[in-house]
Nucleic acid binder design. Structure first.
Length: 478
DNA sequence: TGAAATGTTGGGGCG
DNA sequence: ACGCCCCAACATTTC
């Protein structure tokens, strides 16, 4: 090991364990850990408000864990390249290491940074801490990208091994102190404190991520295959924000689950969700325009409606459909939404309200603590039917039926819509069909304490089917 | 990882 | 006993 320090550039890999680029850095010399706040470099997708809240706390945790080892996290803001160059000059570092990112703007930025540093004579070493497989490594027989999940995942499982996770390195600290901002100076936290629900729900940071994984393995993995669609239960891993910020890596999750001794069905079902995460990155890598353009070009002329009041009702959880509204309030309050509920609220926005999926993607981007460009893009295009392996155009979720099926006691609705909590389970998903005595007894006045439905689902469904069928027929004609 | 419309079947009430 | 109808339950088709 030489004496020249090595800069490690933390981004969305805010952990010490299973971080190959960090292992490389520690092997080469004393480590100078750096975080640069450069939201402009994420193009049209700088971190949203919920993501910034998470980032602040995750950086605080990382900083504390580094400090335990005698390392000081250097916090900067501005241009990533300028700041990395500055830190390299201040410390005499001749090497910069980081974990690769895969979103379009970040890829481009990273290439420019790497080129410029190499021109300076600085060595650049990158690693993969974010994905099981490199997005460009998996390909069909003729070398093209996959557009359907099942063959993609089958190929992943047969073609490639998931490497065992790497242990934490034991980096030594660089001697010279380096100027750093205080984390608070990045102003990542909201000015008005709306984050109480987030604080009550989450523990950002590497330790919180590992605790969440352990809790999942100990309880919810058993029975995952059947209970995963129940938003009223704590039946999913809720690892998504930890994975997004790289507080835990997919290899760690993968191997922990394989060792867990659960049923094949539960295990494979959960691992296939990790597969969807890989598939999303595969698609975004090959089709970077899909962040706001439909993958199927004919959808560029889909007749989306312009309805600010409808969009506002959806965002605030005031559509009059309890399952939809409970889910939207779960998002607002906790920064997260159950996957089944995501599908239902997305279907409602796109098909019942005929509002553009991009508007939904934007709202999710700002409010989700796990907002991830790859997964968010895939999910919305899937729902709208304009993406890869998309839902068929005629698949329209019934917000009442989905609620009765996946929240049978109405406990999910009751938790997030206290104004309906006293309604009997039989009508809590369709309060407009409750009789007057039931409503009065539950203290519900439709249109007053809780909104009447903004659209009639049966009518809205027919309207959506007509619009989608017209688009398809116009496409067939030429 | 849909839902609604339509078709089929069979039990039971009833004249 | 028989035919008829109703309708629930299930299956199939359609969007």
């Amino acid at each position: 090991m030489s004496n020249a320090p090595v800069v490690f550039w933390f981004r969305q890999d805010l952990r010490l364990a299973d971080n190959p680029a960090l292992v490389e850095a520690a092997r080469r010399g004393p480590v100078v850990p750096v975080f640069v706040w450069a939201p402009d470099e994420d193009g049209d997708w700088p971190p949203g408000a919920a993501s910034r809240w998470w980032l602040h706390h995750s950086l605080a945790d990382l900083s504390a864990r580094l400090a335990e080892r005698g390392l000081k996290l250097v916090v900067r803001a501005g241009s990533s390249l300028d700041e990395l160059r500055a830190v390299a000059n201040e410390t005499g570092a001749r090497t910069v290491c980081w974990s690769r990112r895969y979103e379009p703007a970040a890829r481009q930025r990273d290439e420019q940074v790497a080129r410029a540093l190499r021109r300076d004579g600085v060595e650049v070493v990158t690693g993969n801490s974010a994905l099981l497989f490199e997005p460009d490594r998996i390909a069909t027989g003729d070398g093209s990208p996959y557009r359907v999940f099942t063959p993609f995942w089958r190929r992943c499982l047969t073609d490639a091994e998931v490497p065992a996770p790497l242990p934490k390195p034991d980096p030594t600290a660089a001697e010279a102190p380096v100027p750093s901002l205080d984390l608070g100076e990045l102003r990542l936290l909201p000015e008005v404190d709306w984050a109480a629900g987030l604080r009550a729900t989450w523990t950002p940071g590497e330790a919180g991520a590992l605790a969440r994984l352990d809790a999942f393995l100990g309880v919810a993995l058993d029975g995952y295959a059947v209970d995963r669609d129940r938003p009223d239960l704590a039946a999913t891993s809720r690892l998504s924000p930890h994975l997004h910020f790289g507080e835990i890596g997919p290899r760690q999750v993968w191997h922990a689950v394989r060792k867990a001794g659960t049923s094949d069905e539960d295990r494979d079902r959960f691992l296939s969700e990790a597969g969807w995460r890989e598939f999303a990155h595969h698609l975004l890598w090959h089709f970077p325009d899909t962040v706001d353009q439909p993958l199927r070009p004919e959808f560029a002329r889909f007749p989306w409606r312009d309805d600010p009041a409808g969009l506002r009702a959806w965002r605030r959880g005031r559509t009059g459909y309890p399952f939809v509204d409970a889910a939207m309030r779960q998002l607002w309050r906790t920064g997260w939404m159950h996957n089944r509920a995501r599908m239902v609220v997305a279907s409602f926005l796109v098909k019942d309200l005929l509002l553009p999926w991009q508007a939904g993607a934007r709202w999710f981007w700002d409010t989700l603590v796990d907002a991830d460009l790859a997964s968010n893009t895939l999910g919305w295009q899937w729902t709208a039917g304009c993406g890869a392996d998309a839902a068929p155009y005629f698949r329209v979720f019934n917000p009442v039926g989905q609620g009765e099926k996946h929240d049978p006691e109405g406990a999910f609705v009751a938790r997030y819509l206290p104004e309906l909590a006293a309604l009997p389970a039989l009508v809590i998903h369709q309060p407009w069909n409750a009789d007057q005595a039931e409503l009065r007894q539950a203290g519900v006045a439709l249109g007053v304490t809780y909104p009447a439905p903004v659209v009639d689902h049966a009518t809205a469904r027919r309207r959506a089917l007509t619009a989608y069928r017209d688009l398809r027929e116009a496409g067939d004609g030429g």
